[in-house]
Nucleic acid binder design. Sequence first.
DNA 1: TACTATATAGGGCTTACTCTTATATTCTTA
DNA 2: TAAGAATATAAGAGTAAGCCCTATATAGTA
Lengths: 153, 153
Amino acid sequence: MREVMKKMDIEMKLRGFEDRCRHNGLKVTPQRTAVYKALIGTDTHPTAEKVCKIVRQDISSISLDTVNRTLLTLAEIGAAFQVEGTGQPRRFDGGLEDHQHFRCIKCGKIVDFHYEPFDNIEIPVHLQGQFQIMRKTVYLEGICQTCSATTSS
Amino acid sequence: MREVMKKMDIEMKLRGFEDRCRHNGLKVTPQRTAVYKALIGTDTHPTAEKVCKIVRQDISSISLDTVNRTLLTLAEIGAAFQVEGTGQPRRFDGGLEDHQHFRCIKCGKIVDFHYEPFDNIEIPVHLQGQFQIMRKTVYLEGICQTCSATTSS
DNA sequence: TACTATATAGGGCTTACTCTTATATTCTTA
DNA sequence: TAAGAATATAAGAGTAAGCCCTATATAGTA
Ligand SMILES: [Mn+2]
Ligand SMILES: [Mn+2]
Ligand SMILES: [Zn+2]
Ligand SMILES: [Zn+2]
């Protein structure tokens, strides 16, 4: 059943996260775990503010600063990353598998997508010599269907 | 001779820019022209602040707000774009030909590069139906040589 | 259980950017 | 070419994200 699988998946990720913290000399705190859980529980590439709101359902006293700090920490230890893009409030992604993003320049929505040729692009050797590459992604920008429909009045 | 070609190229771009302004019902002001010129005169993906400094060599009284506003205007009329990436101060690019970016997460440097297979990626049909795509780029993130050298102490 | 190192909450601070308004400039049309 | 209408600019105040500081709290450990 789907739900059961999902729960197992989350449990596994949480276990991995705790290990990752320990390996990096970081304490496993309820706040950290909750932020991580909130992040992997959505595919909306949320802002710190948004994550904070979610986490406060469990830990009502968590501060926005802690959420911010924690999200940066997650990125540092490789448990998440900051989404590329151009918006003001920084956005995060807990999806570590290779995938691509489309961003709507009207509403700011960021949509995940997969496409074999993009997921599997190979970095050419001359660049590998020049840079130590840690992330690669195909980034598309434009207008989503909702916004297209709304605008054309 | 290189210099002469460069000058002709700039002249052509400026002419095109003025046309683009008029077609969009925008007045051609010294400030706008200067901001545009500054932007196409660099490949460093500058911030508004940086552009402002450059422009002030010509127009010492230009305000940072005008530079900001103008850069956004350039993006709106398609004479430039905001660079994807994750940094705080927004950065701009006047290079409209297909090209890709590498961004160093240590020093924030953004480097242009070309690679045929990346420059020519085709957007799959199922995405074209879903989104109106206005820009595509391969975005790489990592650590540049300078920062690699510095860090490994 | 007690100790040490690290994390958090809260609040103030900084900085990039946006908004407002009075003045200046472009562009049009007579 | 002069005058008028529409738009742009400069300056400064306002806003919001996120960073920094410090006293208190908590996790890991012995
Ligand atoms: Mn994603
Ligand atoms: Mn570029
Ligand atoms: Zn949209
Ligand atoms: Zn670097």
